[in-house]
Design a protein around this nucleic acid. Structure first.
Lengths: 206, 206
DNA sequence: CTACGTCCGGACATCGCGTCCGGAAATAAG
DNA sequence: CTTATTTCCGGACGCGATGTCCGGACGTAG
């Protein structure tokens, strides 16, 4: 419980508070390739130079920790992608994916951890699905607009194709960011952009 | 150690051996929506009506169990997809995806469990990646063939676009199979097929 | 009957989790 | 300086799950 009469310690604090230390240590361990599921609280605390009991006075459990970490990557990638719209054209779409890929490379370990936990924990899965939802909604809207303007075939099922685009695209980007060579990022981004462009937004009329 | 003088029991055996019982029980629990990571050995044995010690005389640990389960879905989906080739055209591709979706719906719980464990266990991840590899290799080959025949643009980077197609496509199918309405399967399959067809195999020349 | 293989049931050590508490250290208020 | 308050340490505790081990029951094949 925070005091009402005192300001919280470490106001501009050099002596990094334990909570921030734990967050940073976890990120560090993830960057080093550790699996979040398999790393213990003990291990995290050792890396943070903090007592194990201190961990539990800041986080309810490991799920709470990963959820707190999730907050850090709100926006960024989503903002980048949602800035693009069909009128910007194919080249700008490829550029957008290249930027997203850059962001994903930075955040890769953390994103990996989140999807990792999301596969078996409901609360994390829900948080993550919600992050994707805003993106899904926007894509559906964009496709419908293109259809009304006659630039995309009216026969496209916007909802179904959005599943292909968002779910599939996200996974492909994650895969490239984790397993692919950074030198190939530009080529990959271009291919992803062209596939979507000619396969969806400018698909030839049936 | 198996006897050399006696044949192994249960040769055609009705009295279902404990091992098969455990395998079946695990599958049953997965179908009921349980998370493999979160279900204990105790739980599995209770469902199988088997002593916990018996589990360990058949499986080294839970990873061994999931690996043994993986064997069950060799082929099937892969065989179905690799049967298709570009000469068969768009309609047949849509049909193929519909079939794959049917298979995935049957195997969904097991596949979910495997990808679940694959996110944090190396051995499972390797086995799974190897399953996908044969599919990846074939796709790259198909695209190159189309390029040589002048039916697909020579500018396509076969390796990069295959990542988009295989990794992204697999995930989209899994998502539709787990979260999508079965009634929408045909529409989804059609959209996936058209996206690939016009976005990759028959992408307009740059 | 005997040898063998399979399974049960329970004991055991071990480990990680989450809780709890007394006390040290640092810091701000009086 | 003294005191109150916050933060953290360090360790104890109970709990549940893991993986190992063993004695013995049971059925079956020689």
């Amino acid at each position: 419980m925070a005091s009402t009469t005192r300001r919280r310690s470490a106001q501009v604090g050099r002596p990094t508070t334990a909570e921030a230390g734990i967050l940073a240590a976890t990120r560090r361990l993830l960057v080093n390739g550790a699996s979040f599921t398999e790393m213990g609280v003990q291990e995290i605390c050792a890396e943070a130079g903090v007592a194990r009991s201190t961990f539990y006075s800041h986080f309810r459990d490991k799920i709470d920790l990963i959820l707190r970490l999730t907050t850090d990557l709100t926006g960024s990638a989503f903002e980048t992608t949602t800035a693009w719209e069909p009128a910007d054209g194919l080249d700008r779409l490829a550029e957008t994916f290249e930027n997203v890929l850059r962001i994903y490379r930075d955040q890769a370990p953390l994103r990996r951890a989140i999807t990792e936990v999301a596969t078996y924990d409901v609360s994390v899965r829900e948080v993550w699905a919600n992050e994707l939802k805003q993106f899904t909604d926007r894509t559906i809207e964009m496709i419908r607009t293109e259809q009304k303007a006659g630039r995309a075939p009216a026969t496209i099922d916007a909802v179904a194709v959005t599943r292909v685009v968002v779910v599939g695209g996200e996974q492909a980007i994650v895969d490239q960011a984790t397993a692919g060579d950074p030198a190939d990022d530009a080529v990959f981004a271009r291919e992803l952009a062209e596939t979507w462009w000619y396969g969806v937004f400018r698909r030839p009329p049936g």
